[in-house]
Design a protein around this nucleic acid. Structure first.
Lengths: 202, 202
DNA sequence: CTGATTATATATCGATTGATACATAACTAT
DNA sequence: ATAGTTATGTATCAATCGATATATAATCAG
């Protein structure tokens, strides 16, 4: 935050882009599967540079998780929040999830946090808090969107926002899993409409 | 199958139990995280014995997946199939899932296949087919249970069995994820009744 | 300029990885 | 008994692991 000082030789690579590449490697190969060689090669830097800029492997890993949570992880949620019509909002959320589950620019599939990071909860210190915080944060945002609809009057006052938010999140998990398992986007779109109807039923 | 021959020195350890221990190690530490030392130590055998009995690390891994699919993976499904009352059957399925997600005799959490194996789909040859087959098989069994209820007349003829089976499966994924993330069983039981109602609505 | 500070590249560290060679032990078949 | 076959234990392989020591290059303040 307070890195106002500029001293010594400046780094010759893009910090954020290197971090993005690191995330991609962790995503596709997992924490243990990603070797320092894999990482440095993808990031375009050498070992000592990596350690100087990001710390050790674990710290780099945590930084990629934070990057994902800030930038990459909320595309479906943003789609859900910005669309005014609630039906279209849900459709947008789920469509984004399906798209996300089946193809990602990094070449990885599924959700980095939900299908890769989560496996290192008991293994890498600092991961558990981040995963739980991600669930908490996402579900709150989803529930808030439903609540807004109640205020608008398009959903009844006793609409179970929190429950439906949790359900939406679980559907997300299912799609991510199917994506990892190799399911196509078309196949997942199949039940989309009936699921939307179900999410809004009361 | 046709191992009718008995020749040479017999093995001095229990094959199935050793395989179970191996599964436990893979489950808790992941594929890459599980070292040969970890495995042989937990299995109570030496390296050469492991390679003689199970092949290399990858083959051992695939064998643990098959073991899980045959024995361990279907506890919730069996609970769903055996209970006659459909409401109680769903409750049994979900309760079993929650219990499964929060505690397991091996000390691992979540579903071995859904939260651990799935991350090695693109990494270890032979895993992808097994994961897809597991989804296919489970969803068919779940749908068949709903179909039986249609035949009994307790559910309407146009009840969407396949859709609800897929939904049930996705809920399972959600619980498994939450379990990995550290959620308690009580917390997950919260929405159970309303979810059952939703699964049976038409 | 000089001195201080930081990033980079080369080379390499000890430790651990997955996997075996070898000799020995224990069993079956003849 | 003898030969054939398989499992086990010891000891160890080359390769790779995560991480660093060292020297050099590039920037800053003065």
């Amino acid at each position: 935050m307070t890195d106002t000082k500029k001293l010594g030789r400046p780094r010759t690579f893009d910090y954020d882009e290197a971090l993005m590449q690191a995330m991609s490697v962790f995503w596709t190969k997992g924490y243990d599967g990603a070797s320092l060689r894999d990482l440095t090669q993808a990031m375009g830097i050498t070992g000592p540079s990596l350690y100087a800029a990001f710390g050790d492997k674990r710290e780099l890993y945590l930084k990629t998780i934070d990057l994902y949570a800030d930038v990459d992880g909320c595309a479906p949620v943003v789609a859900f929040e910005t669309e005014e019509d609630i039906t279209k909002a849900i459709k947008g959320f789920l469509s984004e999830v399906v798209h996300y589950a089946t193809e990602h620019e990094s070449g990885a599939k599924g959700c980095f946090l939900a299908s890769s990071v989560v496996t290192t909860v008991g293994q890498v210190e600092g991961v558990a808090e981040r995963v739980e915080a991600a669930i908490e944060d996402t579900e709150k945002r989803l529930a808030a969107r439903f609540d807004r609809e109640i205020e608008k009057g398009t959903l009844p006052a006793d609409f179970p926002s929190r429950e439906r938010a949790a359900l939406l999140y679980d559907l997300r998990q299912g799609y991510m899993f199917r994506g990892r398992a190799g399911w196509s986007g078309e196949r997942m779109q199949q039940d989309l409409d009936s699921r939307i109807q179900m999410l809004l039923s009361h």
